[in-house]
């Protein structure tokens, strides 16, 4: 499975001239950008600006129309690549959690470990328990997703992704579907991850998180990157007019 050879010196994510159309609708227009290893990059922008599409092109849940995407030096957009092996190394967390409702929490965390990584059941369970501990839900391993709050479900989803030992993590608005009082728990888990040096790309509306945890902030609008840089600089002193008008609405 792992005939993928990682280039140790390449950036975690490297996107070159990425274009994406849905039919005639151009959603991404020549995106160039990269995420360095061990950094947290936050992506903000108005609804429909293409943030999710960009994120989903990185593990090819969405098929780029043209351009190249590299993850740790491996070309994702190469048609011959073992996509499943590559995806197993990229954790993804969704706005709607997408836990498997027919499986218990523990099975949610072990199913891909045993079926994709071919880990022994014992080992998978051990890894799962360690990650449940990490997200503060060790006692819920026998629960089913429907019996958990949104915040708990999202933390389980993070633990599920972590159980594959990913090299990097993609988050698509992980707290947008949560009641406000539950947002903090999830952000807390993400902060811990960041401080452990996990490479993360986070589409978010949480400006506080971006400022505090992010190493880089990217502002997208209309399928292009309008402005990017140090989060404190972009948020505090935006250079582009579109950034200024967006921030004046959300801050």
């Amino acid at each position: 499975m792992s005939q993928i050879t990682v280039d140790e010196n390449a950036p975690a994510i490297d996107v070159q001239q990425l274009h994406k159309y849905f039919g005639d609708n151009q959603v991404l227009t020549g995106i160039d950008f990269h995420v360095d290893r061990g950094t947290v990059v936050c992506v903000i922008g108005p609804s429909g600006s293409g943030k999710s599409t960009l994120l989903r092109c990185i593990n090819r849940l969405e098929e780029p129309t043209s351009g190249k995407v590299f993850v740790e030096g491996v070309e994702v957009t190469d048609p011959d690549i073992d996509l499943d092996a590559l995806r197993a190394r990229i954790g993804m967390v969704f706005q709607q959690f997408n836990l498997f409702p027919h499986l218990s929490v523990l099975d949610n965390l072990t199913v891909a470990q045993t079926k994709v990584k071919k880990r022994k059941k014992d080992e998978a369970v051990e890894v799962a328990r360690r990650n449940l501990e990490k997200v503060g839900l060790a006692e819920r391993e026998d629960s089913y997703p429907a019996h958990l709050s949104g915040g708990q479900q999202q933390r389980i989803a993070i633990a599920r992704a972590l159980s594959m030992d990913p090299d990097l993590m993609l988050f698509d608005e992980p707290t947008s579907a949560l009641d406000p009082e539950l947002v903090g728990d999830v952000l807390g888990v993400m902060k811990d991850l960041a401080s452990e040096g996990m490479t993360m790309m986070v589409v978010t509306h949480e400006m506080g998180f971006a400022r505090e945890v992010g190493h880089k902030l990217v502002f997208m609008d209309g399928g292009v990157i309008v402005e990017e840089g140090d989060p404190r600089t972009v948020l505090g002193d935006p250079q582009e007019e579109r950034t200024q008008s967006f921030l004046s609405k959300v801050l």
């Binding site: 499943d84 190394r89 969704f94 498997f100 994709v116």
Partner: peptide, 18 residues
């Protein structure tokens, strides 16, 4: 079955058959 279920499974590295 919601589309997100397949997406979650695929993002964990499962093949479409799996």
């Amino acid at each position: 079955v919601p589309k997100g279920q397949v997406e979650a499974a695929r993002s964990l590295g499962m093949s479409s058959t799996r």
